[in-house]
């Protein structure tokens, strides 16, 4: 690697340094915009005792669901889980811990983490089980919860196109949590469908500026659809 060139050519290099017990923030919503090859590499590496921060936990046999097969995940921080039978089983067995977090709070926790904001107040969750043990404060007569930011040892992100400098754009709603995840990793790895020349992406259209990105790898994607609905 030289200068701003972030491109790596093997998935082994893409996740070099990932160790047992680390926290990994993953982009994606359901199976949309998930870094499916980076997840598969974590399975191959057999890294254990991971905390995974992701809106969902994939499905049986695909996405983050595959990391449950060999019990690699000890804790999930998510807003909605249980689309997979294995998740339910490990949760009930006590093999897996889950911290359910409102979806907007989760996005903001990642955003704050990446932006150097240690905590923020939100009305979301006041008076609910989410508020247990958290500080509250009134502003203009309304009660708010103090929520702490999240950062990860790694962030794994799925982009559409990137250049060698790590500037990334996302495609359609595959954007979702990916831009926030990209900012919140000590090491941020982005896998993309297409690598373009530096200067080819319109600077004003870049979603994730390269400063957040440490490694870029080009992959091929299955892009499984969770719930295919059509007009016919």
């Amino acid at each position: 690697m030289a200068g701003f060139d972030k491109v790596v050519t093997t998935y082994e290099d893409a996740l070099s340094g990932l160790k047992d017990g680390m926290t990994v923030i993953a982009g994606g919503f359901g199976l949309c915009g998930i870094p499916e090859n980076l997840i598969a590499e974590i399975k191959r590496l057999q890294t254990k005792n991971l905390t995974i921060v992701s809106n969902n936990c994939g499905v049986d046999g695909f996405g983050l669901g595959i990391l449950l097969e060999d019990k690699q995940v000890s804790k999930m921080v998510s807003s909605y889980v249980g689309e997979n039978a294995l998740f339910e089983k490990q949760l009930l067995n006590g093999e897996l811990d889950v911290e359910l977090t409102p979806q907007g709070t989760l996005a903001e926790k990642m955003r704050a983490g990446g932006a150097g904001i240690p905590a923020f107040y939100t009305a979301t969750g006041v008076g609910t089980p989410v508020a247990e043990g958290k500080d509250t404060r009134f502003f203009d007569g309304r009660e708010y919860l103090l929520e702490e930011a999240i950062t990860g040892d790694f962030a794994i992100v799925k982009g559409w196109k990137a250049d060698r400098y790590g500037n990334v754009i996302y495609r359609h709603t595959a954007q979702n949590f990916n831009p926030m995840a990209a900012t919140a990793g000590k090491i941020t790895v982005v896998e993309v469908e297409e690598l373009v020349e530096v200067g080819e992406l319109d600077p004003a259209h870049i979603h994730t500026p390269g400063i957040y990105v440490d490694r870029v790898i080009v992959g091929t994607f299955e892009k499984r659809i969770e719930n295919c609905t059509t007009s016919e």
Binding site: Y80, P102, Q103, A123
Partner: peptide, 15 residues
């Protein structure tokens, strides 16, 4: 019962 999560519902009702 199995708890799947609140998704965005808490944000929606609070906001």
């Amino acid at each position: 019962k199995l708890i799947k999560g609140m998704g965005g519902a808490m944000d929606l009702v609070a906001g």
